[in-house]
Nucleic acid binder design. Structure first.
Length: 677
RNA sequence: GCACCCAUAGCUCAGUUGGAUAGAGCGUUUGACUUCGAAUCAAAAGGCCGGAGGUUCGAGUCCUCCUGGGUGCACCA
């Protein structure tokens, strides 16, 4: 049984009782965890709300405590509820029958695992890195938030499709192509040869990272603060045009560059356990005429109109009344430029409509990459659907009920326009169907800049953080950071476990590195700017992923030892809790054990809150608190040495349940538990 | 100019839909390895929740104003 079920049962009983006694329907009922164990396992401040509503309805003033007393008897008849107390100004505090609930919670579940009835498809787009350079730590925050959100949704029983948008025909790709063609004077063959010759630790995407910053200088004739040279910008415009057009040598070259970058970004993400179902490419949005269809729909619905005079003459614009126009800033958003080309916003509206299954067109697909466990990542293509791998059946892509776009908060304005544009075309799904899952950027702490050898102005030094910049090459590459984490972890593992094989040591170090990085990025809530600091990110102690992993590893080692000692769990304690169990769970010592169990039982609640609020930090904090509570328990109780058999059996039950919940929580965070560490 | 975000311990951050005595990590000080592993545990110190009003049984949380920071507001993406 899950604690959440019991909690919901109590809630509905309270709702019934309130209706019966006061003829009041409570639409939402808050359940809280009391601040101290002595105050019970669950608290309901419902009497305050009822007092307010009663006063409004009848004018009658009733003290909350009296109301709570009236509700109390009904709750006491619920199974697993031992007693109910009215406390404070009118709290209803529920106490569970500990021994009975313990056996119910830890009993092996036989039923169906995820009984989700809602089979609507949810769609999450994340990562979406411009395929012209390697991923940096800011991109990784996007991917880790997105991936963890996906895992959270899945753990809560949802069906999810993961997309990664590839802007393979954009300005940023064009920039790197300018670099290859006009700085390096390379042909496609030269680039391929270069790619093949690069060392694994500094691969093609890293090369592009450096080249991209050189292009920035190239446009400014070598002076980063200087004006851009119009002649050189013309090169970019020409290349961009050729890429958009397709079917020419420049487009072919650009496709090679973009695809190689995508492959290596996917390699980086694979290191962190992050995968995708579909890579949706902008080239197909163009060539399969998604925009034309969206344009037609927008015109039909009157979402956009043609401007025949004024500053935006010749453009198709979308009115955007919530922002007032000024001399500098237009209140209307241009969707089609006066030269007839479509803006990014327009393309994104088309893509968004497709995602929601409302465009009336579809991509063609081909496999991009498959994994040992059978997972496959697909990519969009203009070629007819090719079932080149019949053993890998193609899923139905698109048609999401709700679409979540993980995009940093700097893009909240354009995202708002996209959302309104979509809602204007398909009012029946409305603005609610597109969710901008925004998060703040990762910036660099002044100390981090110093460590990277970046010179700061006096002005910058006073700032709390410095924004990263791809154009200036200012940032921490994801691969470099992961390498460093792995090296640090490996040194520790070798020192602690010299007996392990080289492969085992490396795998363990890898798991620790992933745990450290993912947790570091998840412990901040989404709307908090992360000022990246090496010392903090590289830490394995305190509130970190490795701390949580360590707790689980220690728990597992108890059970490894138990097996070899043949001291298995007394199963009868589970089905028939004895009086002795009740006794061990009471008193101060019992409170401590019980509070660990209650915390472990709240995993489902924590996860559904994380999923509902799209805030993975909630689950990260929960996991850390559970690990901390377990470490305390571990320190206080010698399980194997415990002589009282009943007590030992109970301790084993609690430890077993806790490690399962902890492991499961970590899995949802994308963090694995190594054998030893 | 307009819109959005942020301000909580020395530092970095949590704080459920408005609920009981505002929490954690780091850092500092002091203790705990003959034990299921010390990447751990315990204890101490550390707070006018940026300021001022308001809403109510109750405000770190909601509303208004102010101060100080950040980010957007392209015929870029």
């Amino acid at each position: 049984m899950k604690l959440l079920e019991l909690q919901n049962r109590i809630k509905s009983t309270i709702g019934d009782a309130a209706r019966e006694a006061f003829q009041i329907d409570l639409d939402q009922l808050a359940a809280e965890v009391p601040p101290r164990t002595e105050l019970g396992d669950l608290a309901f401040p419902v009497a305050f709300e009822l007092a307010k509503q009663l006063k409004q309805k009848t004018g009658e003033k009733r003290p909350p405590r009296t109301i709570a007393e009236a509700l109390k008897p009904k709750l006491e008849s619920i199974e697993f509820v031992q007693q109910v107390e009215v406390a404070g100004a009118g709290y209803l505090n529920v106490f569970f029958d500990r021994a009975k609930l313990l056996s119910a919670l830890t009993a092996k579940s036989v039923g169906s695992p995820a009984e989700s009835i809602d089979r609507r498809k949810l769609m999450v787009e994340h990562t979406s890195i411009n395929p012209n350079k390697s991923a940096h730590i800011g991109h990784v925050r996007n991917s880790v938030i997105g991936d963890t959100f996906v895992r959270s949704l899945q753990a809560a029983g949802n069906r999810v499709e993961v997309q990664n948008y590839i802007d393979n025909t954009g300005v940023q790709v064009a920039d790197v192509v300018v670099g290859f063609m006009h700085i390096e004077n390379m042909t496609l063959d030269d680039i391929k040869k270069l790619d093949a010759s690069l060392p694994p630790e500094e691969p093609f995407d890293h090369y592009c990272w450096d080249l991209y910053t050189r292009v920035g200088l190239f446009y400014r004739d070598g002076n980063l603060d200087g004006e851009q040279n119009p002649e050189k910008l013309k090169l970019r415009a020409e290349i961009l045009h050729a890429i958009e057009e397709g079917n020419n040598p420049i487009a072919e070259l650009a496709d090679y560059v973009a695809t190689r970058n995508v492959e290596q970004i996917l390699d980086t993400m694979e290191r962190l356990g992050i995968r995708y179902d579909l890579l949706a490419r902008e080239s197909e949005i163009l060539h399969l005429h998604f925009w034309e269809r969206a344009f037609q729909l927008m015109k039909e619905r009157g979402a956009i109109h043609f401007v025949s005079e004024g500053r935006t003459r010749g453009c198709w614009v979308m009115p955007f009344e919530s922002h007032t126009g000024t001399e500098e800033h237009e209140s209307d958003k241009i969707i089609v430029r006066s030269n007839g080309t479509v803006t990014y916003t327009g393309k994104d509206i088309a893509y968004q409509l497709w995602k929601l299954g409302k465009l009336g067109l579809d991509f063609n697909y081909k496999p991009f990459r498959s994994y040992a466990d059978g997972h496959a990542t697909w990519v969009t293509t203009t070629e007819p659907n090719a079932e080149t791998q019949p053993e890998v059946p193609r899923p139905d892509f698109g048609g999401g009920a709700i679409v979540y776009n993980v995009i940093d908060s700097r893009q909240s304005y354009p995202q708002e326009i996209v959302r309104k544009g979509v809602a204007a075309v398909v009012p029946e799904v409305g603005e609610e169907a597109s969710v901008h899952l925004s998060y703040e950027m990762v910036a660099l702490s002044p100390a981090a800049c110093e460590e990277l050898g970046i010179e700061l102005s006096d002005e910058d030094r006073k700032r709390p953080y410095i924004e990263m910049s791809g154009r200036k090459g200012l940032g921490v590459k994801a691969d470099d950071l992961i390498n460093r984490l792995e090296a640090d972890a490996l040194a520790e593992v070798i020192a602690r476990h010299p007996d392990l094989t080289d492969t085992e040591q490396r795998e363990t170090a890898h798991a620790i590195a992933v745990g450290a990085l993912r947790y570091f990025l998840l412990k901040f809530t989404r709307n908090s700017v992360i000022a990246f600091d090496f010392k903090e990110a590289l830490s394995f102690e305190g509130e970190t992923g490795p701390y949580c992993q360590y707790a689980a590893v220690r728990a597992n080692s108890i059970f490894r030892k138990l097996e070899t000692a043949e001291l298995t769990v007394i199963d009868s304690e589970r089905s028939h809790p004895s009086n002795a169990a009740t006794e061990t769970l009471s008193g101060e010592a019992g409170d401590e054990i019980w509070s660990l169990l209650m915390l472990a039982a709240r995993l489902e609640e924590a996860n559904s809150q994380a999923a509902a609020s799209a805030e993975p930090a909630v689950l990260a904090k929960y996991t850390f608190n559970l690990a901390k509570a377990f470490n305390l328990f571990y320190h206080r109780h010698r399980i194997i040495a415990e002589e009282n058999e009943t007590k030992r059996a109970m301790l084993i039950n609690v430890a077993d349940y806790t490690r399962q919940q902890l492991t499961s929580a970590l899995e949802t965070l994308g963090i694995s538990v190594p054998e030893r560490m």
